[in-house]
Amino acid sequence: MSTVRKYMMRTMNSVCEEDSIEDVIRVMNKIEMSVLPVVDDENKFLGTIYSRNLLKNIIPEQYGFLESHRLLYQVNQAAENLAEIKDRKVKEYMSTNTTAVKENDKMDNIADIMLDNKESYLYVVNDDNKLRGYISRADLLYYLLEVGEDQQ
C-alpha cells in the first residue's frame, strides 16, 4: 500500500509565529507558493498562513465587481493597508485549524481529507508532529494515475 512518504515533497520551507507578514510575502514570492506552514522553534507544525487570508485583510471590497475607474483607488488602498500590517506577526493571521497528515498515512486516505478540507496542499508531519514537507492535489492525481496504470 502506497504511503504519503513516497509522493510528498520533502521541504522545510516554513515561517514562525513571530515572523512578520512582510517576511511571509517575500518567502511566498521566492518559492512561488501561496500558502506556508507555520512551525514553532522546534519545527512542530502549528498551522498555515494563506495569501488569500492576507488579501482579505487588505482589500476593502471584492475585486471583480468593481467599476474600472474605482480599481486604481482600491489598489492604492490595498497597498496602504498592507503597509500598515506588514510588520505584524504571523500569529495574527495564521489558521490553526489546518489538518496535517503523517508520512506513513496511506495515499488512499488523502483524497478524502483533501476534499473535506478543500485544501490544495496538506502539510506532512512525522510522529512527533514535526514538519517534513507537503503533499499536493497534483501529487494525489499522479498517485491515482499510477493506480489506474497498475490496474490495466
Binding site: 520533502r10 520551507n13 521566492k30 518559492i31 514537507g133
Partner: peptide
C-alpha cells in the same frame, strides 16, 4: 534556478531546508 535545484535535490529523497535569495 534555485527552485529547479531544489526539485533536483528532492528527487534524491533529501529534505530541503533552503533560504531563497534574490
Amino acid at each position: 534556478q534555485g527552485l529547479f535545484f531544489e526539485k533536483m535535490v528532492q528527487e534524491h529523497g533529501i529534505t530541503t531546508n533552503y533560504i531563497f535569495t534574490e
